[in-house]
Simulated scan of single mutants.
Amino acid sequence: MAYVESRKNLVGSACGIAGLVLTFTGLAGTYWPVVVAGLYGAGALIAPPERPPAPEFPDTSSRLDALRDDFGTLRAYLDEVELPPAASGRLAELTGLLDGLLAPGWVSEALAADPEGVHALSRAVHQDIPESVDTFVRTRWWTRITPGTEPPERHLEQQLTLLHRETEALAAGLREAEARRQQIHTRYLEDRGRNG
């Protein structure tokens, strides 16, 4: 059935019909079956090959929906973890920024147009933040039994600061893209006003 709908069969059939037209007009003569079959074969040979369909991947907005759900799961985990005040404040700033970027609306629509940004947020939610907090919790336990070592709070605060900077840079990039878009539209309107 796939061959019946294929390009090769359709082009070959069109050429075969042209052979039948030649037969009915008397140009094919007694060799009309050979002419029709030959034209069908030639048409099937010159037809472009079938192109396999391109794979369909989920669009970025569906990835953002899944990321929002995962961020909710991460926040539930973070609410159960006891952190020192400085790290807790830094984490609240970071999660607030992530919450703003992932909130449904025009910001997440702008983010959906930036696959690298979605990847960076996905990495932060799925890997960086949970790893930082979980490593702190495990290291803090060891520090309690072996006092005198470097406090794990410093590393946690530094990691959260770095993640906050990275997320702020992403937000700044989105803001700059929107500002450029606005400037381009202004130039377009100015040019249209001059030419109109």
Rank of each mutant, 00 (worst) to 15 (best):
Y3E: 12
Y3G: 07
E5F: 09
R7W: 06
K8W: 02
V11I: 15
V11C: 03
V11T: 07
G19P: 09
G19R: 05
V21K: 01
F24I: 10
G29F: 10
G29D: 08
G29R: 06
T30I: 07
Y31D: 10
P33G: 08
V35S: 07
G38Y: 08
G38W: 07
G38C: 06
Y40N: 02
A42N: 00
A44T: 05
A47F: 04
P49Q: 11
P52L: 08
P53Q: 02
A54V: 06
P55W: 01
P55R: 06
E56K: 03
F57H: 02
P58A: 12
S61W: 00
S62H: 01
S62Q: 03
L64R: 00
L64C: 00
L64P: 00
A66C: 00
R68K: 02
R68L: 01
D69A: 09
G72E: 11
L74D: 07
Y77C: 04
L78R: 10
L78H: 10
E82L: 05
E82K: 04
P85Q: 10
A86T: 11
A86L: 08
R90Q: 09
A92L: 12
A92T: 11
A92I: 03
E93G: 08
E93A: 13
L98Y: 04
D99E: 15
D99S: 15
L102C: 05
P104M: 04
P104L: 06
E109F: 00
A112Y: 01
A112G: 04
A113E: 09
D114R: 03
D114N: 07
E116K: 09
E116T: 10
E116M: 05
G117E: 12
G117F: 07
G117L: 09
L121Y: 05
H126E: 15
I129L: 10
I129F: 08
P130S: 12
P130A: 13
T139D: 04
R140M: 05
T146L: 14
P151A: 11
P151C: 11
E153S: 15
L156T: 00
E157T: 11
Q159D: 13
Q159C: 05
A171I: 06
A172G: 05
L174A: 05
R175N: 12
E176Q: 08
R181T: 10
H185V: 07
R187W: 14
R187I: 07
L189V: 14
E190N: 06
R194K: 14
N195V: 13
G196R: 14
